[in-house]
Simulated scan of single mutants.
Amino acid sequence: MGLNIPSALTQVLLIEDVSQIGHARRTAQQLAEQSGFDETDAGRVALVATELASNILKHAAHGQLHLRLTGNQGVELIAVDRGQGFDLDSCLVDGFSTGGTQGIGMGAISRVAQVFDVYADQRGTAMLARLYPRASASKDMRYGVSQHSLHDDPACGDAWHLVIEPGRFSVMVADGLGHGSEAERAAQAGEAVFAQDAFFDAGELFNDLHIGMNGTRGAAVAVAQYDATADSLRFTGVGNIGASLIGPGKSRGLASHPGIVGVQFRKAQPFDYAQVGGQMLILYSDGLQSRWNLADYPGLSHRHPALIAAVLHRDFCRGRDDVTVFVIALEAIDG
């Protein structure tokens, strides 16, 4: 059975004062309830939100709590800050505290959440928790996305879409020209076409995207199709969606062709990459600076893809456009 996961903005809650902890708890609990969690499981989500928000205030004084649904019955929470970091192993021991408290927060999070991961250095901390209903058979999917509109506009000119089938997945990232409602209309038109047949021949798929986006501003579009059985990745891009393959000790950019899908482009030539299993694929719109290098973040490439997306957004968001960072492990996904 496959999964079709549509684009959705990351919900961002500012954590700057103790009064905002309660708001974070209620917002996270409501998100869980709306996605089908029962009262007990929604309470687990609320507990984790409380501990993550409290941890931000204790260790960094201020930061953000990012919320989103995983697409396979899960709720994702990521605490992001620019504090001085901390020793993770020590903080996971109940009773240890760097903030003069009882020191039970991080240990509680790691026990309650089905997925827990942290990255911390001198630039700050990103702490991930994913929770699923106790009765759910869903397994964690090693992908992550951080998507934000300019100035928190309800309309976002970026779109992403992930389709998962046994042994393979296909993902698209689109960036409509400019930002606001017209850019959103262009990106969503492309997403609607992609969702219909995400595994279609790349050249034909881009022709369909071009037709489907005709009459809009158009967009930069990238599509990556991964086959775990063949251990191969096919990448096709038109415009300035950034793409990188991250492997052990190496990183390489993936080339796109010039043009604007829906307006004018000469060709959409796919590029095939073999023996990519175990590597990480990162796609990003031009709202993210391109000068980042994961080698500057020791150990980050081994952390959960959702943490990588959150850290890159924190440190390299341009702040003058919509931004999407999509990160996925190249492996068979069982959602």
Score class of each variant (00 low, 15 high):
R185H: 10
G85C: 08
R25G: 14
F235Y: 02
V263F: 11
G2H: 13
H148R: 13
K139W: 07
P258Y: 01
D227M: 13
S136N: 08
L9E: 15
G180V: 00
A329P: 12
I56D: 10
Q279Y: 10
D153M: 07
S181K: 14
Q269K: 15
P133N: 05
A224H: 04
Q196L: 10
D272P: 08
R130F: 09
Q84C: 14
A126M: 09
A46V: 02
F326D: 01
A53M: 11
R111A: 14
E165K: 03
C156P: 08
I241W: 02
H257E: 14
R44E: 15
V323N: 10
D38H: 04
G103C: 02
K139H: 13
D38N: 07
P258D: 03
F169C: 00
V118S: 01
T27P: 12
A219F: 03
I56K: 06
S256Y: 05
S146C: 12
M213G: 00
R68Y: 11
G190A: 02
Q30A: 13
T216V: 00
L92T: 15
V12R: 15
P270F: 10
Y297C: 02
Q114S: 11
G176H: 09
Y119T: 00
M106C: 15
G249P: 10
L233S: 09
G167P: 02
G253Q: 11
I5G: 01
A174P: 01
I308T: 08
G144S: 05
F326K: 01
F265E: 02
I333G: 08
L233N: 07
A53Y: 14
A42V: 09
A198Q: 01
A53W: 08
W292T: 04
G100P: 14
D17E: 13
L254Y: 00
A268P: 01
R26S: 15
Q196K: 09
K250I: 08
A202L: 01
V173F: 03
S146W: 02
L245Q: 09
R130N: 11
L150S: 09
A222V: 00
S244I: 10
A243Q: 08
E39V: 13
E204I: 12
D175I: 04
L162P: 03
M172Y: 04
A243K: 11
G107F: 12
G144D: 02
R303P: 06
D121S: 12
A135E: 08
A53L: 06
D17G: 08
V163N: 09
A189M: 01
V261Q: 00
G262W: 01
N4C: 11
A24G: 03
I333N: 05
L205I: 03
V93E: 14
A187P: 04
V325E: 06
R142Y: 09
T236H: 06
G83E: 04
A8W: 06
A186C: 00
G212S: 03
R44W: 15
M127D: 07
A219D: 01
H161T: 00
L13S: 05
G247K: 09
C91Y: 10
S181I: 15
P154C: 06
G99V: 09
V48A: 15
V118P: 02
A243L: 11
